[in-house]
Design a protein around this nucleic acid. Structure first.
Lengths: 187, 187
DNA sequence: AAATTATACAACATGGTGTCGGATTATTCA
DNA sequence: TGAATAATCCGACACCATGTTGTATAATTT
C-alpha cells in the first residue's frame, strides 16, 4: 500500500504523460480532457483535481523546462565570449531535447520561445556588458538576433535527431557568431 | 443594390476582420464562433457558410500572407549577396507588419514562421548556390540559422513599431550577417 | 478498529458546435 | 415589368465538451 502523496504524485504524472503523448501527435486545441483521462485510465472528473484545463497541463510542463537563474547548467567556457551562453544553451537543449523539439516546433507554443529567450538573456547581457560603445537600442536588436538564431538552429538540430555532434554544432554556431554567415561560405 | 458576389465577399471579409480584431487581443482558443459573428453582426450559423471553424479563418489569413514564388516583392539588390533575400524580407515585413507582428508573436502561430521560412528559402538557396565547398548538411544548418535570425530580429522590429528606419535595420542585419555578432560589439 | 482525511468517480447543468429547413433578399429571364 | 429562380442569412435542433458537486472508496491517524 503506497503513501497518499506518492499516489497523487503518480496520478498527476500519469495525466501529464498522457497529455504529452497526445501533444506530440496533434495540436493542443484538438486535445480534449476526455482524451487525456481515457489514455491515462481515469475518470474525466479526476483531471480537474489536478489541473484547471488542458492548457494548464502544458503550462506546468513548460515551467519545469524553463531554468531559473540559479539552476542554469554550469558552463565550461570563459565568460566574456559568446561561447559561454552558447555552451549553456547547448546543455539545456541536450538535457531537454525530447521536449524542446515539440514545444519549439510547428505545433508548439510560440510563448515558450519567448520564455526561453528571457531566461537566457541575462547570461548574454553579461557577455555584452563590457562593450560600452554600442547604442542600447542597437544592442537590443543584436540580442534578439542572437537569441533567435541560436534557438532556431538548435531546434533544427534536435528535430533532425542531432545528426551532428554537439561539438560540431557548437563549432559551427561559434563561427557563425564570430565571423558572420557569409564567411562560412567560401568561394 | 449591390451585386451578389460583392455582398458575399463583403460578408466574408467582415467575418475575417471581426476575427482579426479578436485575435489581436487574445489567444485563438478563447475565440468562439459566437464572439466573431456578434462582432461582425451576423447570425452564428452564417459563419459556417464561409468557414469550417475558427482555425479555418486563421489559415485563410495566413495563406494570403505567404508570398508565392512569382509574387515575391521585387528586389533592388545585386543577386549573389545576402542583401537580396534581406531586401526582399524587409519589404515583405513592411507590407504586412500589422499581421506579421501578431502571427509571429507570443499568441501567434508557430507554423506560420515555418511557412514563411519555406517561402523565402529558394531565394537564399540562390545566394548560397555558387558556394561549392560547403557540406550540404552544414548548409542546411546555416540556412536555418539565417532564416531564424532574420525573422527574429524583424519580428522584434515590427513589435517595437519600427523605431529604427528600415535602412538602419537593413544595415545592421547586413553587418551581422557579413561580419558576425561579436564584431558589432567593439572594445 | 473507529474516526478522519483525501482520492477517484458518477451525474448534472451549462455552453459551444455544427447542421438542418425555411424566410428573405437579390438576380434572371420571359 | 414581374414571376421564377437562386442565393444569403437566420432560427432551431441534436450533440458533445466543459466544469462542478455530492458520494463511495481507500488510505492514514489515533
Amino acid at each position: 500500500m503506497k503513501k497518499r502523496e506518492e499516489i497523487t504524485a503518480q496520478t498527476k504524472q500519469n495525466i501529464i504523460d498522457a497529455f504529452w503523448g497526445l501533444y506530440c501527435e496533434k495540436r493542443i486545441e484538438k486535445i480534449k480532457v476526455r482524451d487525456i483521462t481515457d489514455k491515462a485510465g481515469y475518470n474525466r472528473g479526476t483531471f480537474y483535481e489536478y489541473f484547471t484545463d488542458v492548457y494548464d497541463v502544458l503550462e506546468h510542463i513548460e515551467n519545469s523546462l524553463i531554468p531559473t537563474l540559479d539552476e542554469l547548467p554550469p558552463v565550461s567556457m570563459p565568460s566574456g565570449t559568446i561561447g559561454m551562453p552558447l555552451d549553456m544553451f547547448l546543455k539545456l537543449y541536450e538535457q531537454n531535447s525530447r521536449y524542446y523539439s515539440v514545444l519549439l516546433g510547428d505545433n508548439g507554443d510560440p510563448a515558450f520561445a519567448s520564455k526561453l529567450k528571457n531566461s537566457i538573456k541575462p547570461t548574454i547581457v553579461k557577455v555584452f556588458a563590457d562593450k560600452q560603445n554600442v547604442d542600447q537600442i542597437e544592442l537590443d536588436y543584436i540580442m534578439e538576433y542572437t537569441l533567435s538564431a541560436m534557438i532556431g538552429i538548435m531546434s533544427y538540430w534536435v528535430k533532425r535527431s542531432e545528426h551532428l555532434t554537439s561539438e560540431k554544432l557548437f563549432e559551427l554556431i561559434f563561427r557563425l557568431m564570430e565571423e558572420g554567415v557569409m564567411k562560412q561560405l567560401p568561394r
